[in-house]
């Protein structure tokens, strides 16, 4: 029998697939070492990153995993921030653990009520409904001066961490104990989210994203699963908002404004919503990019807008998607 050369696909080199969890853990490890090398200002910048990172882990459960794009997710960050503000400045509750619990409960409860309506819809209808609820909440914050402080917001006082009061300047508090506390929280919530996405519940959500009709046919309870994802994402948003509020020392209505929701979408797209750690990477790059560009030019909004356009056109999978693509090509894949 004559030998015949048959073209065969290149055999991929045996490289381990980098999972989202490892990327997140690597990010967390870098963050843990950062206080030894970075300036206090850089460490302060990492706090909004951690706040957004946590919120985006939740946001991506809804967007990347379940396929529901919310344009009003900043509402939950606002709930977290105002919960911290109300408890610290009006009721004298300083325990950060209680603030987190209250923020999680508050955003969770609100998300159950709003979610009962929102998750009945998908695509643009879901987006518009979440936007509407977000703007309703913003109007409440803006108009009810006696309760919320109106446009001037509410002050968030320095909380106690694990029941301990930390003396010294605010910067030392934020870049020291609060930094590590937030990092541990980020790690725990990251691991929890990884577990959620890998669980049967996570598979149900992915099935819903891929084809809700088929998923329903095989017994997936679409409405309950979507509602559960919505509530979990809201809880993550509330916790992220609490970290943001303690960092800035203020809860203001802009936190719940639709442009802030837009920023969350931007971060998710920037990092890549198709991967587990992508949105967290997006949050990091967004925070650093905005800080850099704002210092560079007064036309920083043009630059940020330009980046978004370039991303959508050339890197629709975001930064993590682009890295994966490069990684796969190096391994001989397509």
């Amino acid at each position: 029998m004559p030998s015949v050369d048959i073209a065969s696909p290149a055999v991929p080199r045996a490289m381990p697939r980098v999972s989202g969890l490892w990327v997140l853990l690597a990010l967390l490890a870098i963050m843990a070492l950062l206080p030894f090398v970075a300036s206090p200002y850089v460490l302060l910048l990492m706090l909004p990153f951690m706040g957004y990172g946590i919120a985006l882990l939740g946001f991506n459960l809804l967007f990347g995993t379940t396929g529901l794009l919310s344009f009003g997710h900043a509402m939950f960050l606002g709930i977290g921030a105002y919960t911290a503000a109300a408890l610290t400045s009006k009721f004298g509750v300083k325990s950060f653990e209680l603030l987190l619990l209250a923020a999680a409960l508050g955003s969770g409860l609100v998300s159950i009520v709003t979610g009962l309506l929102c998750v009945r819809y998908t695509r643009i209808f879901f987006g518009m409904l979440t936007l509407a609820f977000g703007m309703l909440f913003h109007s409440f914050l803006f108009k009810f001066y006696a309760v919320t402080g109106g446009d001037q917001g509410m002050r968030v006082l320095r909380p106690l961490l694990l029941g301990m009061e930390w003396r010294g300047g605010k910067t030392a508090f934020l870049t020291g104990p609060f930094y590590y506390y937030s990092l541990v929280l980020f790690a725990l919530l990251g691991l929890a989210m990884w577990r959620i996405t890998q669980s049967p519940f996570g598979l149900h959500l992915k099935a819903i994203r891929e084809n809700a009709g088929k998923a329903a046919y095989v017994g997936v309870q679409i409405f309950r699963m979507r509602l559960a994802a919505f509530v979990i994402s809201a809880v993550y948003g509330g916790i992220g908002g609490t970290i943001l509020a303690v960092t800035t020392g203020l809860a203001d209505p802009e936190l719940a404004y639709w442009t802030h929701s837009g920023n969350l979408v931007f971060m998710a797209v920037l990092g890549g919503s198709g991967t587990f750690a992508g949105p967290a990477i997006g949050a990091l790059v967004f925070v650093l990019l905005q800080d850099f560009v704002m210092s560079l030019t007064q036309y920083w909004r043009f630059v940020m807008g330009g980046v978004l356009v370039l991303l959508v056109v050339f890197l629709p999978q975001g930064l993590s998607g682009a890295v994966s693509l490069l990684f796969n090509r190096r391994n001989g894949g397509r």
Binding site: L44, P48, G153, L244, T248, L250, E254, S295
Partner: peptide
């Protein structure tokens, strides 16, 4: 407020 506080700290 949030971003301006960050600019102040910068």
């Amino acid at each position: 407020p949030k971003d301006t506080i960050e600019r102040l700290r910068r």
